[in-house]
């Protein structure tokens, strides 16, 4: 079933970020706050407006994701690429950080 999370780009460096359950903006989609019904989606949208006002992020969007086990899987390819990095440079973007973290 499709649910929703809130994503944006961080103001200072433009990095893709997701709103976490604790209200922080996270570097990875894992741990993002999941909205499963209309009221929760409305709350996400409000949180987005507040984050823009508080000058933390830009280009805020609610996106569709699927819960696959413990993972969140964005439905649009665009969002999957934002989540990981360029598909042609696996050494760049968040996918690279994860690889190096796993290797360590």
């Amino acid at each position: 079933m499709s649910v929703k999370v809130l994503t944006a780009n961080r103001l200072t460096d433009g990095e893709a970020v997701w709103l976490g359950a604790n209200g922080d903006w996270l570097d990875h989609i894992d741990g993002a706050l999941v909205a499963r019904h209309a009221e929760a989606v409305a709350a996400l949208e409000e949180a987005g407006k507040a984050a823009i006002k508080s000058n933390l992020v830009i280009d805020v969007n609610v996106i569709d994701v699927e819960e696959r086990g413990t993972n969140l899987y964005p439905l649009r390819l665009r969002e999957r690429i934002r989540q990981l990095g360029p598909t042609i440079r696996l050494d760049l973007g968040k996918q690279a950080e994860k690889t190096s973290a796993n290797a360590a």
Binding site: N9, L11, T12, D13, G14, E15, A16, I52, N55, I58, D59, R78, I81, R82, G85, P86, L92, G93
Partner: peptide, 28 residues
């Protein structure tokens, strides 16, 4: 001024674009 919050993104966007700064999927 943008980083200090004195300019909103709406105000800043045309200014950054005039200086070649775009926002893409992963970064500026």
């Amino acid at each position: 001024r943008r980083l200090a919050g004195e300019l909103t993104e709406e105000q800043f966007r045309p200014l950054r674009l005039m200086n070649g700064v775009y926002l893409q999927l992963h970064a500026y």
